[in-house]
Amino acid sequence: MVDIAWENFTPWSALAGGIIIGLSAAAFILLNGRIAGISGIIGGLLTPRKTDILWRVAFLAGMIAAPLLWMMTADLPPIEIKASYPLLVISGLLVGIGTRYGSGCTSGHGVCGLSRLSARSLIATLTFMAVGFGTVYIVRHLVTGA
């Protein structure tokens, strides 16, 4: 049986945050005609075209500014990073290579792709979710035995 951590369960804030993310993706496609895919927006900066740099930087600056603006008025929600630096490096490399090779991440395939009813994005999302679940299972229950 699945053992649910009810004390950590936050459906309303999760739903509210999801709606805000959806509004961001909606604004980006309806105002600028672009897909809000974070890995693609970052990746495009590595092979930059002149007209293509500023808006990418602007989008990413907005994301990085979000917690800074938040901190001016309220305490940030918890951000707990328990992974060691070496693990974060391996994880970052895999995420970087994987998202570019697979043309998207949780935002581009997950949010935007599923909203577009794209078969490609559905397969990508099911794949990275399944492997994400599998990886945590291996790390938490087979390797560390926790």
Binding site: I38, G92, G102, A124, T127, T135
Partner: peptide, 23 residues
């Protein structure tokens, strides 16, 4: 698409970060 998503999923599961939350 599938191979890339496998690598991404593994990286995501190792530390809990995907690109947006990382930023």
């Amino acid at each position: 698409l599938v191979l890339g998503s496998v690598l991404f999923g593994a990286g995501w599961g190792l530390a809990g970060f995907c690109p947006g939350p990382g930023l």
